[in-house]
């Protein structure tokens, strides 16, 4: 099997790996870096459990191959433990009951995070659209949408 050297930035740190170029980013994260917060639900871009940020945008890591990573910035759920906006989202997810089995949760949080980075005051429809690619079988989405909404309000409201 052929291997390539690939350099990119992972959770704020430069990394260099030697992997087969068609290895999926999802597997690189889970196997090479042991970052298991990124999940696999379908492997074909439909479920969003594997969502990560690529240069700040939500993407499906099951559809990205190692060869496409050169020079990119990848952020996973583990990379945002100290991020204020992410912490707010996480707290609101818990307070609103947006987490049941939790398997969709990291991907869902990253989609929400990417949305809020782009637009701090999204409408409910914007929120629904931003997470339409994240399937959740447990919650029916209502409390997730509520949690994201709450995170927009408290961020933009200095009194909170």
């Amino acid at each position: 099997m052929k291997f390539s050297t690939i350099k990119f930035e992972l959770n704020g740190k430069p990394v260099e790996i030697e992997v087969p170029p068609a290895m999926r980013l999802l597997d690189i994260l889970r196997e090479t870096f042991k970052l298991t917060g990124t999940k696999e639900g379908c492997g074909i871009g439909e479920c969003g459990a594997c969502t990560v940020l690529l240069n700040g945008q939500a993407v499906a890591s099951c559809l990205l191959l190692a060869g496409q990573l050169e020079g990119t910035k990848i952020t996973t759920i583990e990379g945002l433990v100290h991020d204020e906006r992410m912490n707010l989202l996480q707290r609101n997810f818990l307070e609103c009951g947006a987490v049941q089995c939790g398997f969709c949760t990291p991907g869902m949080l990253l989609s929400a995070y990417a949305l809020l980075q782009k637009d701090a005051r999204p409408t409910t429809d914007d929120i629904k659209n931003a997470i339409a690619g994240n399937l959740c079988r447990c919650t029916g989405y209502k409390q997730i949408i509520q949690a994201i909404q709450k995170s927009t309000e408290s961020l933009s409201d200095p009194d909170q």
């Binding site: 818990l94 009951g97 987490v99």
Partner: peptide, 21 residues
């Protein structure tokens, strides 16, 4: 009452361990 899930924090930080983890 409104009680937050006992297992919540691990789940929202990606630390919760599912089978494949």
């Amino acid at each position: 009452k409104h009680i937050i899930r006992e297992d919540g924090w691990e789940k929202v930080t990606g630390q919760a361990k599912y089978g494949d983890d």
